[in-house]
Computed example of a mutant assay.
Amino acid sequence: MIDKIEDLDFSGKISKNELLNVLKKEASKIHMHDIMLASAYIQEDAKYMQAGYREEFVETFTRAFINRFKDIREDKKNYEGYIDNKKLEEFLKVLDNQMKESRIRQEQYFLRLAKIVSIYTTFILEASIHPVGTSFPGGFKLKFENGEYLCPVKEKQLNTPGALCRFCVSKQDKSI
């Protein structure tokens, strides 16, 4: 049985349930201390944002991490279908490059947690990587309307090398 994301066999089909089981094993190794270190990184990374926006951003992401880990650990659903192996491999390359470039301990914890949460969100739930309600500069928020996730910055981030936006199911919010 596979215990780590890195041990997945990309030469054959990977079911959503198989990936979920691996993510559950990875999530079971995460402790509150890890989440606290990741939260410290989020706070540090956001220190130059405007005060009101920064506080909301830090709270939203910290709460999302805690809730997503709880969701992963408790998810007993049966998911139909298989994941797109090529897309997951590309996704992992982006995350692995970010990990290699990280210089501080808190960022490494954040990336470790973000990897689990973002894979779950993108490949299992097929939901937006950012939580609904996430604020972006200019006062814009990620929305869910008529069965679609609408992101105010998707198109601007598609060519950003480290951004996961190109993998996200969100669509550009055309009202912005």
Rank of each mutant, 00 (worst) to 15 (best):
F136E: 02
E145Y: 06
E126W: 07
R103M: 08
L150H: 05
K93Q: 10
L158S: 01
F91C: 03
L95G: 01
F110D: 09
A163R: 02
T134E: 12
G138Q: 07
Q106S: 15
P137N: 03
K154D: 07
A163S: 15
P152N: 00
L125Y: 06
G147K: 04
S102P: 04
Y109T: 01
L125K: 15
K100I: 03
K86P: 01
F123E: 09
N146W: 01
Q98N: 13
F110H: 13
G147P: 00
E89M: 13
M99Q: 06
S118D: 15
Q157F: 13
L111G: 10
K141T: 14
K154C: 09
L158D: 03
G139Q: 12
K141N: 05
K87F: 06
G162I: 13
P131W: 06
F91I: 07
K141I: 11
Q157Y: 11
G133I: 09
Y120G: 07
I116K: 08
S135F: 08
L164Q: 02
T121F: 04
P131K: 13
L142E: 05
K143A: 02
V132R: 00
R103K: 14
E148Y: 05
M99R: 11
T160K: 14
L164I: 14
E126C: 09
Q108M: 13
E148K: 15
L150P: 00
V94F: 03
A163G: 04
E101A: 12
V132T: 12
K100D: 14
F144I: 02
